[in-house]
Design a protein around this nucleic acid. Structure first.
Length: 735
DNA sequence: ATGCGGCGCCTTTTT
DNA sequence: GGCGCCGCAT
């Protein structure tokens, strides 16, 4: 199309819309609206290859940004396979990874120590708790979570404490704490996730020469999952592209599910305006799902307004209908899923091609238990990841002290772990001294008593090893000299033995760690002569990539994860569990403006993960957070046309209780039984779903016998409210 | 000064 | 079910 096209091979496997996207004008920006399963990654990587092969750009002119490390790696792998070039000069990584590289390169401009550490969200939470204590603010009057959310939201909007103002005293106090937090982090040389971006943006903005350099270098910026960018990320991109770079943004407004952490779908329309793009290019051909599944996804998402407008189509056959199962309780739901998985296994479906999705991590427990008892191997993604484990964080804290003893957070974490007789009192003394002389805890702790001396000695010893011994040796030293490993070895419980294994695994990770391989996090050249380089790289890697790829994807195991975690993945068979109103959509989202629409997009993401078969299930009763919850089917189930659904009727206990079916009952009884037999009230059970001609579908949450054969039922009809009805008068049908 | 048991409170999604 | 806090025993 442009110039001589010497890459027909590249385009051969693309459909016309994909080819149009890949070959669009290399000098101007473009927005690609790419539906689920429409070949988004292929278009993105082919575009890069096309730019290079047609000499529209050199490798060093390209920056490619993704949100997850997984996506970055995937792109890296595909590009390496596609192209004969060395791609090292290309900046390819996550927003956070790229900004990390940038700040390490320009640490002086950024006003940071070269060895600055990255806080993950739990590190940030503990700093905030410490801060509140220091400021004498009661956690009840200001929840740490609230402050943490406030700080991150402000940073993501590009706002520093000194430009904020508020009329109400509560917000004023938040702003004050934000300012204190900034100081604290600065003093300790630590940087949270949002700070990586904000600081990068600020130094570019404040330094014309620097900005000009990067603007002329990066002539092509490609962005994946553009719908997930927040305002700050967009401003950063816009600043970088302001010298005339062509931005190739790929996204799907229907898959925007990270609004809660600042993602702003509005960036897509903003982008069209700011970069003068007439028409987005739409990829609407779906190559993933069978017809019925796609039809269900389209039907659900159509209930959202303000979409950019896009309808996926497929040439695939209709396939099977979507199975819907309403279980009596969560355990029965898990049993249903396990039985279906067994059946799939018999039909030779690959276990690792089966995914089990849920809205929140807490729902995984029951499913896990059922899978475990059925001896079906499974793999859980998310939840506690490797680098987030307590013992691993302890070990990393020692490592952080080894390169920066002024890291107060790290010091507090391990000064008395394993226990070495430094109690709350001593720590308070150190903190007071530090505050008085405006120094770090480490400095204040010098010469403060004989209990503390061995700890100081220990840290000094570790510091002396940095750059002298290998990274793996250093980690081993940490475990041995600190007594961490011995501490856990002395514990009797099996769970503690697992911690020993994790620590050993950490040594393995350090042994296998190659600084050169961290190309994705891209450590800059000016660090090369710093003896702490491997340690810094290792720690950055741990913070930015908290072990998300540790799962052996090749293993034959059912994949368990939240719907969020499933984005970007696909499976032959998918189970969406816990489809109850209030769980999915989550009732917490209902109070927020636009919350329901976001939940619906989440449902859209969940449905479109499935290639061939989709199951949707719910539990009328569920034990969650130690409380019994009663649920009716999610509204999202109602939004799927009935013609696409296949209702699998649950084994109805109430119907069978009076005949001799107790044998069947025993047979289907959950392996882990939680309650005795449910009691009947005029044929109804607590937790059962019923339909009332006026109030619609509800769930029985309480009942009492009237003595004359009828019963009073308390029924929750959701939006229609809670009603008390007598079975003798009300027309109720079970469903 | 530390360790441990009991009690009350919260509870979504993640780079 | 998990976590922080408190009070008591060591």
């Amino acid at each position: 199309m442009f110039f001589e096209d010497n890459t027909p091979d590249l385009l051969r496997h693309l459909n016309p819309q994909q080819a149009q996207a890949v070959e669009c004008n290399p000098k101007t920006s473009a927005l690609i609206l790419a539906g689920a399963g429409s070949g988004k990654t292929r278009v993105l990587t082919t575009r890069i290859a096309w730019l290079l092969q047609n000499q529209h750009a050199g490798v060093h002119n390209i920056m490619a940004v993704t949100f997850t490390n997984k996506a970055a790696k995937e792109m890296q792998t595909r590009l390496s396979a596609m192209l004969p070039y060395n791609l090292r000069a290309m900046w390819l990584g996550t927003f956070h990874g790229i900004c990390n590289r940038f700040l390490r390169l320009h640490y002086r401009d950024a006003g940071l120590p070269q060895t600055f550490q990255i806080l993950d969200s739990s590190d940030q939470a503990s700093i905030i708790k410490r801060l509140l204590k220091q400021l004498n603010i009661d956690e009840k009057s200001l929840a740490p979570r609230t402050l943490q959310g406030f700080i991150n939201a402000q940073k993501e909007a590009g706002l520093r404490a000194n430009v904020l103002d508020a009329p109400d005293p509560f917000t004023q106090r938040l702003i004050k704490c934000y300012a204190e937090y900034e100081q604290l982090c600065q003093r300790e040389g630590v940087v949270d996730f949002a700070e990586l971006l904000l600081r990068s943006y600020e130094i570019l903005n404040a330094n014309p020469a620097l900005l000009a350099h990067y603007q002329s270098r990066f002539t092509h910026i490609l962005v994946d999952e553009f719908q997930d960018t927040n305002k700050l990320q967009y401003a950063w991109l816009k600043l970088l592209a302001d010298g005339g770079a062509a931005v190739f943004a790929v996204g799907d407004d229907d898959q925007s599910i990270y609004r809660f952490r600042g993602a702003n779908v509005g960036n897509m329309t903003q982008f069209l305006r700011d970069f003068q793009i007439n028409q987005p290019i739409k990829l609407e051909q779906n190559y993933r799902s069978v017809g019925n599944i796609l039809a269900a996804a389209n039907a659900v998402i159509q209930n959202n307004t303000d979409r950019l407008g896009k309808n996926l189509r497929t040439d695939a056959e209709a396939g099977e209908k979507i199975s819907f199962f309403a279980a009596y309780n969560d355990i029965a739901e898990a049993d249903f899923i396990v039985n279906e998985i067994k059946e799939l296994k018999r039909e030779n479906w690959q276990l690792n091609q089966i995914a089990l999705l849920y809205r929140s991590n807490a729902q995984s427990r029951v499913l896990e238990q059922a899978l475990f008892q059925a001896a079906i191997s499974y793999k859980i993604y998310g939840g506690l990841r490797f680098y987030e484990r307590l013992e691993v964080k302890h070990a990393l804290a020692y490592l952080r002290l080894a390169i920066n003893p002024n890291d107060d957070n790290a010091l507090l974490r391990v000064i008395n772990f394993p226990p070495r007789g430094i109690g709350t009192r001593s720590i308070e003394n150190i903190q007071a001294a530090a505050q008085q002389q405006n120094s770090s805890l480490w400095q204040a702790a010098q010469g403060m008593g004989k209990k503390i001396a061995p700890f100081i000695e220990l840290v000094e010893q570790l510091r002396g090893q940095v750059g002298v011994v290998s990274l793996a040796e250093l980690v081993k030293s940490v475990l041995d000299l600190s007594g961490l490993i011995k501490h856990y070895q002395n514990q009797k419980q099996i769970s503690e033995q697992e911690r020993v294994e994790n620590l050993e695994e950490l040594v393995n990770a350090a042994t296998g760690f190659r600084v050169e391989d961290v190309q994705l996090d891209m450590l800059p050249e000016n660090l090369a002569d710093n003896p702490a380089l491997p340690v810094i790289a290792f720690l950055s890697n741990a913070a930015l990539e908290s072990g998300e790829n540790q799962a052996g994807s090749g293993d034959q195991a059912v994949q368990l994860m939240t719907v969020h975690a499933a984005k970007g993945l696909e499976f032959d068979a998918v189970f969406i569990s816990g489809m109850e109103e209030g769980r999915f959509p989550s009732e917490l989202s209902m109070n927020e403006a636009g919350g329901l629409a976001e939940e619906r997009r989440l449902m859209y993401v969940a449905i479109t993960r499935a290639r061939k078969r989709l199951y949707i299930s719910m539990a009328q009763q569920r034990m969650l957070h130690g409380q019994m919850q009663y649920g009716v089917p999610s509204r999202f189930v109602d939004e799927i046309p009935d013609s696409l659904l296949h209702h699998l009727s649950p084994p109805s206990k109430s119907r069978n209780l009076n005949d001799n079916s107790h044998l069947i009952f025993n047979q289907t009884a959950p392996a882990i039984s939680r309650t005795e037999l449910p009691r009947e009230f005029d044929g109804f059970l607590i937790g059962e779903n019923v339909r009332h001609e006026k109030f619609g579908v509800g769930v029985i949450i309480d009942a009492s016998d009237k003595g004359n054969g009828s019963a009073n039922l308390t029924i929750n009809f959701g939006a229609q409210g809670v009603k008390e009805l007598n079975t003798a008068f009300a027309k109720l049908t079970k469903i």
